[in-house]
Amino acid sequence: MEKETDIENCKKVLLGEFEPVISAKNLTKTFGHFTAVDSISFDVAKGEIFGFLGANGAGKTTAMRMLCGLLKPTSGKGKVAGYDIEKQSEQVKKNIGYMSQKFSLSEDLRVWENIRLYAGIYGVHEREIAPRTDELLRQLGFESEKNSLVKSLPLGWKQKLAFSVSIFHNPKIVFLDEPTGGVDPAARRQFWELIYQAADRGITVFVTTHYMDEAEYCNRVCILVDGRIEAIDLPRNLKEQFNVKSMDEVFQQMARKATRKAD
């Protein structure tokens, strides 16, 4: 019953109604004798918030780098935004946004300079930049901070700004690498609301994290253990399946199977 409810998009993916924006088929990456990512397959639908979870060294970052076109897979296929991750990595890069833990903002630049910089990197039309910068700052309520240096902003604001910048060029997919460490609860919620809004606009959000309370916010999560997908489902279903209250407990049970301790 629960499985059929929840997110419309997931249903569509499960029923194969439209082509997924991210799809991985037996994606594998080995470094020497070490298999970092071991034949993972999954699909992510348009507008979905997809959580990619795992302990340190479970292979999250390697998998994400392959999807972003930064690493060549050893074997397997992957498609992102309709482009082959191995052969069309340039096209892939044009269609994705990326935000990392460190927010990838230049601390010594002003807010508007940062926006301009990223808009420039992603080839946003010169004419559009100024009005859209104002529009963005208005939405965030940052108008008064337009000329502030980024380093003077509180962490929560930086995070919101970094996310907004990463989707300024309207990518099809945005990859968030461990995005919300250490911000206060209120700022964190504002951040997730921004993510929801982006998803409403049809941007697919791919989040890696090892904080399980973050995972609760995702539409669907995929749990990686030792480079393999151990579970992929809605958070509710997983909690139900393990008969626990939180994703943290789900994860504790799953991660116990891990053998890769000393990575």
Binding site: A55, G181, G182, H210, Y211, Q252, A255
Partner: peptide, 13 residues
């Protein structure tokens, strides 16, 4: 001081 920042859930526990 923030001993569990950046540490995975199992190690945190």
């Amino acid at each position: 001081d923030e001993p569990t920042t950046g540490v995975d859930p199992v190690s945190r526990k």
